[in-house]
Every structure is written in structure tokens, then in C-alpha cells.
Amino acid sequence: MTAPTAVERVAAVADTMQVTVRDRAAEAPWGSGLTTPITRKITISALCPVCGGRRGEPFGINSCDDGAYYWVQGWNNPCGHRDMYVAVLAEARELERRTGGAA
């Protein structure tokens, strides 16, 4: 497999969006102490991975978990398909791998 060309990298990031999500997999396991939420700003496709329609506009969400406050974003896809943070984190990793970090 060859590395993507500059044109392929630009095409891959042309229709993307940046969102901030919670990365629970990067946090200490439940029951091992206080919760310290870890958030990440990631780049994902602006298109729904199920049907290809546009994803909704991101909006901010203030949250609290065990007294730790954090801010993330959510969005409502007009098509009705729901995005889960674990899935969009995997999507962001794959996009970064495919584009060589250009996203």
C-alpha cells in the first residue's frame, strides 16, 4: 500500500468537521478513583458513515461526572443516524492514518 498523494490528502479533508468529544478509553477504569474526564478535539468526515448525508451542526454540552466538569460537543444528524463517541474517535484515527495527519 502506498502513502496517499498530496491531492488525495486534500480531497480526504475537504469535507470534514472538527468536534470535541470525551475519550473514555483514555481514562482510568471505573472504580479506580476519581473521574478525570479526557476530551479530544478530533477531525471527522462531515458526512454520515451510514447513509452519506451531512452530519448535523455541532453544539456545546457542559457536563459533570463525579464533580469533574468538562465541555464536549454533540450533533444531531438530519438523517436520524446516531454517532457514538467511540465510533467517531475510531473514525478520526483512521482519517488521520489515511491522510498522514493532514486532517
Results as ranks from 00 to 15, higher is better:
79 C>F: 10
24 R>F: 03
64 C>D: 15
90 A>S: 08
63 S>L: 13
42 I>K: 00
66 D>W: 05
6 A>N: 10
17 M>N: 07
85 Y>R: 05
10 V>S: 12
44 I>P: 00
46 A>C: 05
49 P>F: 03
88 V>I: 15
77 N>G: 04
73 Q>I: 11
97 R>D: 03
95 L>E: 03
55 R>E: 02
89 L>V: 10
13 V>S: 09
47 L>N: 09
23 D>I: 08
66 D>G: 04
85 Y>G: 06
78 P>F: 02
92 A>P: 06
5 T>S: 13
75 W>G: 02
53 G>L: 07
1 M>V: 12
50 V>N: 03
72 V>Y: 02
68 A>Y: 12
19 V>W: 01
73 Q>T: 10
74 G>L: 07
40 R>T: 09
20 T>I: 14
52 G>N: 07
75 W>Y: 02
18 Q>K: 15
22 R>S: 06
64 C>E: 15
54 R>Y: 06
30 W>R: 05
90 A>Y: 03
42 I>R: 00
15 D>I: 07
103 A>V: 08
61 I>D: 02
80 G>F: 04
88 V>L: 14
56 G>C: 10
25 A>H: 00
17 M>F: 05
61 I>C: 09
60 G>W: 12
7 V>N: 11
12 A>H: 07
56 G>Q: 06
40 R>V: 08
32 S>K: 05
67 G>M: 08
98 R>T: 12
93 R>T: 12
73 Q>L: 11
27 E>A: 03
33 G>E: 12
58 P>S: 04
6 A>D: 14
39 T>W: 11
10 V>R: 15
88 V>E: 01
41 K>D: 12
79 C>S: 01
28 A>G: 07
43 T>Y: 02
84 M>H: 02
88 V>S: 01
87 A>E: 14
29 P>K: 01
1 M>K: 12
13 V>T: 14
20 T>R: 15
103 A>G: 02
60 G>M: 12
8 E>S: 05
53 G>K: 07
38 I>W: 03
71 W>K: 07
2 T>H: 08
20 T>N: 06
39 T>K: 04
52 G>R: 04
20 T>Y: 04
73 Q>H: 06
6 A>I: 14
76 N>D: 14
74 G>D: 00
74 G>A: 11
8 E>V: 13
27 E>S: 05
84 M>V: 10
30 W>F: 11
16 T>P: 05
36 T>I: 13
37 P>F: 13
92 A>W: 00
52 G>F: 09
97 R>Q: 14
98 R>V: 13
97 R>L: 15
3 A>Y: 12
67 G>R: 06
76 N>L: 11
5 T>F: 09
34 L>E: 15
60 G>R: 15
94 E>N: 05
33 G>W: 14
76 N>T: 10
77 N>E: 11
3 A>R: 13
91 E>T: 03
95 L>P: 00
6 A>P: 07
103 A>Y: 02
99 T>R: 00
13 V>H: 04
12 A>S: 13
12 A>P: 06
38 I>D: 04
81 H>S: 06
11 A>I: 11
45 S>T: 12
67 G>W: 08
86 V>Q: 10
74 G>E: 01
15 D>M: 09
75 W>P: 01
51 C>K: 02
65 D>A: 09
23 D>C: 10
28 A>V: 09
70 Y>M: 06
22 R>D: 05
103 A>H: 03
82 R>E: 07
25 A>D: 14
72 V>G: 01
25 A>K: 10
64 C>H: 04
58 P>A: 08
74 G>M: 06
